[in-house]
Design a binder for these strands. Structure first.
Length: 892
DNA sequence: CACTCCCGCCAATTA
DNA sequence: TAATTGGCGGGAGTG
């Protein structure tokens, strides 16, 4: 064959060697001098120019197509030298060539043929996905460039991206070492972790912080550089040592690539829009949205995306947003990362996407692969990116080392979230009206929901829903946006209509049993109960997708709780494969539908309050009360029944959840109630919006609660049965709090009969240390001191625990819990202050013990951590989820 | 016109 | 200093 080709090619010799030159040297005359380093070559034949040759050259010069054709031939031509020549690929190519034989005709290599993605595939085809140890090949840039017929510059683009994923490493000048995908899963895992730290937090975090951060500007910068300097992943591999390789300044392409991947890994939907990514990746905060810079970033992202696409890790999709459709990429690679290097990984999702050639390769190699992990995860890895450097202002938290970065990211993330939100809204059909406040959807950061929100189909009301997402990265700047919901909620709360509507959608089902509370304030709270996947499974009629999402979302939220323990199980329903991953992730995947796009959020911070408040206008207090009532009544009962019985395991829960109860019509919060009803077990969330900005943060808690407790609460206790509460950090002050009734703590036995249910505090929160003031207590504690809320109580009768006494009063007294949550004390209390915006520092407020339970926004920042922690804790399973909305607004 | 993204100049880094 | 790397953005190809 070769011979044949050659004959055909004839003169090519020179060409072969220097194909590049020919083609490239554009304008130039076809000089033969090899500009680029021509490497050697197999056969150095001196004389190149045969008559034919000239002709060809001319032709090529004349027509690009031809040129391409030529190149292609060369490219494809098996490389004699290379060891890999035998790879299957070559065959394919050959074939192609043959076909091309015809002259220059149509094959227009055109641009597509020269695309980086295609080039990358060719490149990848040369190397096995899972090379045997012996197979490791070193890659010579010059050689590859010549073989592929492209300039080196292009090879750098490819190699840099591959390097960011550890598929190759630089060994020396002009030399790279091919590692293949053995480590890919680990690398991705690391990126995911790092991404969660950075972005996950962001997601949750608020913008405001960023603003605040500005202060840190200096620090930040410092940080940034740090991070950049090192590749996120520094994988120093033993094998190939490239000692210095890393040093170069910021290798932006490498870093960008890693960050980009992180976004996918962190994103629930696994879809990231280009613009969002670009914004996030633009180092500076978006403030200076230099258009040109943005453009450049996007160009780079395309470059990266092309390579990632060739790797079968992502695929291009479009997300349709209000404004129109935007380019986006969806992660189709592995989502879970088993601890060990998985060989298999490639196959799963990824494999599908892989080009056949690769796939084949994979198959071949997979078996062989041992999976050695070369890379250790360096702490640095994580740190690097995330920026540890400066601590965030919030320093308060011990935990939050990363937060700063997060903040930054947050904003970005927020954007994403916003986008998502928007979409969601769109999907739902939103009621823009209601929410209009919501903002311009486009921008609103508020939309916190991006993904998760789901449940509510159209209604913004459900903002609450977002929780799940929130859990995620979503940061949601949304806070602001949520406000909408608030407004709605406020209204809704009374009328139940909204709920109903939702229910209609079917989404409501998701939420069934969960009661909502609305708080006027801007801040939102989310609480999570355990999750149950069940929800997911539930029927979602019309809204199907949404519903699913919502369900998932919800599930996601819980993830923390469930994840470890039952995550898989839970997840199972929803997501098939992922056992290991946290439910949330899985769910997310499923949800994939929603892209995270971001909209650029402008600064949500301020607006939020305003907006939110407006809606409700109402005083928070009022709403609260009502809400409470509502809540209690609706969902609670049912929940109680089921849950009470069993609270814990997710599985069980799930089952229960499946049971779904129809629910009661909740008078008060209709939608909520319904939702709750529908989903008996779902976790409850409370989402709080921070008044001010995101920064303030929202929290979600999942509460797992013992069912009983909850149920009781719900019914009887008007106040809340919600197990968990989130408090906005900053804003916390503004809010009051919520208490969750009892949780069941798996551990604790419940002492009091009264509290019986309550027990547990299993909030995942614990891990979080939060400054927030908020609080929750497991046991019931009502805080004596705080006597809060007068208002609430009436209902409370039964369980003390539940109460939330919202203290409308500004004072926020924080009650502390006496016992550590873990203990399972039954109840907790919270106190809040008013929504007034005064930011409270949580720290002061929060009880020492309880820290774990609550996190301030800042603390929240790390969802991941959170989750992890939770896992540890016993989050139990049970739980019903509830949502609460609170409309904050200043009380009045 | 918007989206993609190729191409290659040229600066920063290395050798 | 030359070579290697790689940031960057003009502007062309596509749809």
């Amino acid at each position: 064959e070769n011979i044949y080709d050659r004959s055909r090619m004839a003169p090519k010799t020179p060409i072969k060697n220097e194909p590049i030159d020919l083609s490239k040297q554009k304008g130039c005359t076809p000089e033969r001098n090899p500009i680029t380093p021509v490497k050697i070559i197999d056969r150095p034949q001196p004389d190149p120019w045969t008559p034919t040759m000239n002709l060809k050259i001319l032709v090529s010069a004349a027509s690009p197509d031809m040129r391409d054709r030529e190149k292609k031939k060369e490219l494809f031509r098996p490389i004699e030298n290379s060891e890999q020549s035998d790879t299957p690929d070559s065959l394919q190519y050959d074939i192609v060539d043959d076909s091309t034989v015809d002259e220059f005709e149509k094959q227009r290599p055109s641009r597509k043929q020269k695309s980086l993605g295609l080039l990358c595939q060719k490149f990848l085809a040369r190397y096995p996905n899972y090379p045997l140890s012996t197979e490791k090949a070193t890659i010579s840039l010059d050689e590859v460039a010549s073989i592929l017929g492209v300039e080196r510059r292009r090879i750098y683009d490819i190699v840099n991206v591959l390097e960011s994923l550890q598929l190759v490493s630089r060994v020396a000048k002009n030399q790279y070492c091919w590692h293949g995908r053995h480590n890919l899963s680990q690398t991705l895992k690391m990126l995911q972790e790092a991404g969660e730290l950075q972005y996950g937090e962001l997601m949750t975090s608020q913008h405001k912080e960023q603003d605040l951060e500005y202060k840190f500007g200096e620090q930040k910068k410092e940080t940034i550089p740090d991070s950049q300097d090192k590749p996120l992943l520094d994988f120093s591999e033993p094998d190939c040592t490239s000692a210095s390789a890393n040093s170069r300044k910021d290798k932006s392409l490498r870093i960008m690539s890693q960050k980009f991947v992180m976004l996918f890994l962190v994103s629930k939907t696994k879809i990231v829009t280009l613009d969002v990514a670009a914004k996030i990746l633009i180092e500076e905060t978006q403030d200076t949205v230099d258009h040109s810079k943005f453009k450049t970033k996007v160009r780079r992202l395309y470059d990266i995306a092309n390579v990632l696409t060739s790797l079968g890790l992502i695929k291009k999709v479009h997300v349709t947003e209000e404004r129109g459709r935007k380019p986006a990429f969806k992660w189709i690679g592995p989502v879970e990362f088993p601890e060990k290097p998985d060989e298999l990984r490639g196959h799963s999702p990824t494999s599908d996407s892989l080009p056949e050639t690769q796939r084949g390769a994979c198959a071949q190699y997979q078996s062989s692969v041992t999976g050695k992990q070369r890379f250790t995860r360096h702490s640095s890895f994580n740190s690097a990116q995330p920026c540890e450097a400066p601590r965030r202002k919030v320093s308060s938290e011990p935990n939050s080392p990363h937060q700063e970065r997060q903040d930054e990211n947050c904003s970005k993330m927020i954007n994403l979230t916003a986008v998502c939100r928007q979409k969601i809204e769109e999907d739902t059909g939103n009621k823009a009206c209601d929410t209009k406040t919501i903002l311009n959807s486009a921008k609103n950061p508020n939309i916190s929901l991006p993904f998760s929100l789901l449940p509510v189909p159209g209604d913004s009301d459900f903002c609450v829903n977002p929780l799940p997402q929130a859990v995620f990265p979503v940061v949601q700047a949304d806070v602001p946006s949520f406000s909408l919901p608030n407004g709605i909620s406020s209204q809704a709360s009374q009328p139940s209509t909204p709920a109903a509507s939702k229910t209609e959608n079917g989404k409501s089902t998701l939420v069934p049993n969960q009661p909502f509370l609305c708080f006027p304030s801007s801040s939102l709270f989310m609480l999570c109960g355990g999750l149950q996947e069940n929800n997911m499974s539930e029927p979602l009629p019309a809204a199907g997708d949404l519903a699913n999402r919502s369900a998932e979302a919800q599930a996601a939220a819980p993830p923390t709780a469930c994840q470890k323990r039952s995550s898989h199980k839970c997840s199972s329903p929803s997501a098939p494969a992922d056992d290991e991953e946290p439910a949330a992730k899985k769910q997310t995947l499923e949800h994939s539908d929603l892209p995270l796009s971001l909209v650029v959020p402008k600064k949500p911070p301020e607006s939020p309050k305003v907006e939110s408040s407006p809606g409700s206008g109402c005083s928070a207090a009022v709403h609260l009360e009502t809400n409470r009532l509502d809540l209690t009544s609706p969902a609670a009962p049912e929940i109680a029944n089921k849950e009470s019985t069993k609270p814990l395991d997710c599985q069980e829960q799930e089952k229960q959840s499946q049971n779904k109860d129809p629910d009661e019509p909740p008078p008060g919060n209709e939608h909520i109630s319904k939702e709750n009803a529908n989903q008996p077990f779902q976790p409850q969330y409370l989402y709080v919006q921070p008044t001010a900005g995101l920064s303030s943060f929202n929290f979600l808690f999942s509460a797992n609660q013992a069912p009983g407790a909850i149920s009781l609460a719900a019914n009887q206790l008007p106040s809340l049965s919600v197990p968990c509460v989130m408090v906005p950090s900053a804003a916390l002050a503004s809010f009051p709090l919520v208490c969750s009734p009892s949780f069941t703590s798996p551990l604790s036995s419940i002492p009091d009969g009264s509290f019986s249910a309550a027990a547990s505090p299993n909030f995942s929160v614990s891990s979080l240390a939060s400054p927030t003031p908020v609080f929750i207590s497991t046991t019931a504690v009502v805080s004596p001191k705080v006597s809060p809320a007068p208002s609430v109580d009436p209902q409370q009768p039964a369980h003390p625990a539940l109460h939330l006494s919202p203290v409308l009063t500004r004072s926020c007294s924080a009650v502390k819990l006496d016992s550590p949550v873990c203990m399972g004390h039954p109840v907790t209390l919270l106190k809040l202050q008013q929504p007034s915006s005064a930011p409270l520092t949580p720290k002061s407020i929060r009880p020492a013990h309880h820290e774990a339970f609550f996190k301030t926004p800042g603390s929240l920042g790390d969802p991941v951590a959170w989750k992890k922690n939770e896992g540890n804790q016993t989050r139990n399973a049970s739980s019903v989820q509830r949502r609460l909305e609170i409309s904050s607004t200043s009380p009045d």
